[in-house]
């Protein structure tokens, strides 16, 4: 069961991060719940969450939007979706998700995020299987970003919810 309470942290995080990194104003568009597999946008950034909340977060955007965002982020004009641009978009997904998990942890759900993966290629089917997805459209002046949240609370007593042990780091 997808949970709507997980949505707001992501929308807030996206708005904050996009405003800060790319100077974009974000407006929330349509919201829907999808159960079938999604057809990918030109670019999809994929991250997983593990912990008290588990699942997958997908950010879909067009190459045009990605290039505009990255150009703003790095203060340099990008015309081609090269390695640096890919890294920039993936990092944006990483920062938004990281920021959202901090917000989630304030509400009592600790989760860790995986490194981002970038999927390129339109019309590929991405399925999150038994996770229904909350789909939020984020409108910015640089184009739309679609956020897919396939998240659920980890079942109580499940391993993934429990085996998180706070780590101690030795400072040098």
């Amino acid at each position: 069961m997808a949970n709507v309470k997980f949505m707001n942290p992501f929308v807030e995080a996206a708005a904050e991060v996009l405003a800060k990194e790319a100077g974009a104003t974000v407006e929330r568009g349509t919201l829907s719940l999808q159960k079938s597999s999604m057809t990918s946008d030109q670019i999809t950034v994929l991250l997983s969450l593990v912990g008290q909340v588990q699942g997958v977060v997908l950010y879909g955007l067009s190459i045009e939007t990605a290039l505009k965002l990255v150009s703003k982020m790095m203060g340099q004009e990008f015309t081609e979706f090269d390695n640096l641009a890919q890294s920039g978009v993936a990092e944006l997904g990483n920062v938004i998700t990281g920021c959202a998990t901090v917000k989630l942890s304030k509400e009592g759900f600790d989760a860790e995020i995986s490194p981002p993966t970038l999927v390129q290629g339109e019309g590929i089917q991405i399925s999150t299987l038994d996770f229904p997805r909350i789909v939020v459209q984020l409108k910015t002046e640089m184009g739309d970003i679609t956020v897919h949240l396939a998240l659920r609370e980890s079942p109580p007593g499940s391993e993934s919810g429990k085996n998180y042990v706070p780590i101690a780091i030795q400072m040098k």
């Binding site: 597999s37 969450l49 999927v119 590929i124 089917q125 399925s127």
Partner: peptide, 22 residues
């Protein structure tokens, strides 16, 4: 010690998946 995420399926040939600096 590692925890694994739930699986995601990708159907369709020819998409590019980049793991960036990995």
């Amino acid at each position: 010690q590692s925890t694994i995420s739930p699986p995601t399926m990708l159907l369709g040939k020819g998409a590019t998946i980049s793991t960036l600096d990995f």
